[in-house]
Computed example of a mutant assay.
Amino acid sequence: MVKKYFFGLLLCLVAVISWGGMFPVMAPALNIMDPFYFTLFRYGSVAIIFSLILLCVEGPKSFRPEGQSLKLWIFGTSAFAGFSFLVFLGQKVAGPSGAIIASVMMAVQPLLGVLVNWIYRSIKPTVVSVISMIIAALGVFMVVTKGNPSALLSGNNTLLAVMLILFGALCWVVYTAGGADFPKWSILRYSTLTTLYGVASVIVVLVIATSLGWLSFPTIRSIGSVSSALIYMITLAGVIAVFAWNLGNRLIGPINGILFMNLVPITSFIISITNGYKVSVFELLGCTITIAALIGNNIYGRIKSTTTKK
């Protein structure tokens, strides 16, 4: 039991470190290819890899939705279309600071999870959780504005970028919450089928957008230019991170797993600084405040859970 718990911790650690690195990795790639077709190449490849593994491990019968097609489509579309489209579009709109803003917004996901559980599972948030949300929002505000509140309305689309990333983060929270609706399914099966349904939605959106002239299919040259980013996003931030996250959360529980999301902005900060990005004092302070709010809420949840059991 102890070994499984520590294995779960390791899996969550691998997932969040991989995701923390994807925002700095995507920064130059977004200047070459739009986030929509990048999503197709990324998760299309992930879907193929997952499908081959599932076929070999569990056989053809595991691809049957068993009457859960609607849920699989909603959760898959939320994660592999909504999240990727919105977050990386928001990062692109935000410009040079997009990687930092996106990573900090990912750390707010645990508190977004509180709202999702309230709406979807009727689990009312505690007063401490609400206070933590307000404090975390203050921290995000500091990161986004860098001490200059007028930046949100200065015409550089910062507010739009934040809203896009926020809704994208919410999409991933919905997907994570949906995993609890399939307790009898293996992690591999849930990951594979939701990816397949999500990629189907991605294809539909791209066909419509391209036919209307809103998007154009990327050239071979542009695909080659982002090949290194694609490899990272398909393997580490795709197959490995998605599977590790889903399995890790099942082994150690969502309360413990969610705490690891605090490492996403830290990883992004380190990589961004290494790549030459100059982090302001307000960004560091805002990130610290956000993480402190999340940790405080998590600790309170643990104490309350222990007290209730006694």
Rank of each mutant, 00 (worst) to 15 (best):
N297S: 11
V46T: 10
N262A: 01
A136H: 09
S129A: 10
N31L: 10
Y5L: 12
V162I: 07
I119A: 11
V46E: 08
V162S: 08
F282G: 00
G248Y: 02
A292K: 03
C12R: 05
L196G: 10
L188S: 06
F80I: 13
T77Q: 05
N297V: 05
P218K: 09
A107H: 08
L251Q: 08
K3G: 05
W245N: 15
V46F: 10
I53K: 06
I165W: 08
A177W: 03
I240W: 08
S150R: 01
A209G: 06
F83T: 03
I234D: 10
F141P: 03
V25P: 01
Y120S: 09
G67E: 01
S225N: 06
G276W: 02
F75W: 00
S272C: 08
L111E: 03
V130K: 13
I266Y: 01
S201F: 15
A229I: 13
G113Q: 04
G155F: 09
N262Y: 01
G59T: 07
A81K: 05
T176P: 01
V104I: 07
I187V: 13
P110C: 10
D34F: 03
L159M: 14
S228T: 14
L263R: 09
L236N: 02
A102R: 09
M22T: 10
I203A: 07
S227Q: 11
F41S: 04
P110R: 08
N31C: 03
C56H: 13
F63K: 03
E283G: 02
Q68N: 13
G213H: 07
S51G: 04
T307V: 09
L263F: 15
G198V: 12
I49F: 13
L230M: 13
V104P: 07
T308I: 09
S191H: 00
T126P: 03
T145C: 04
V279G: 14
S132Y: 15
T274Q: 03
L284C: 08
V128Y: 14
I100G: 00
L9W: 02
A99Q: 12
I266G: 00
A161M: 05
A81Y: 15
V127T: 11
I270L: 14
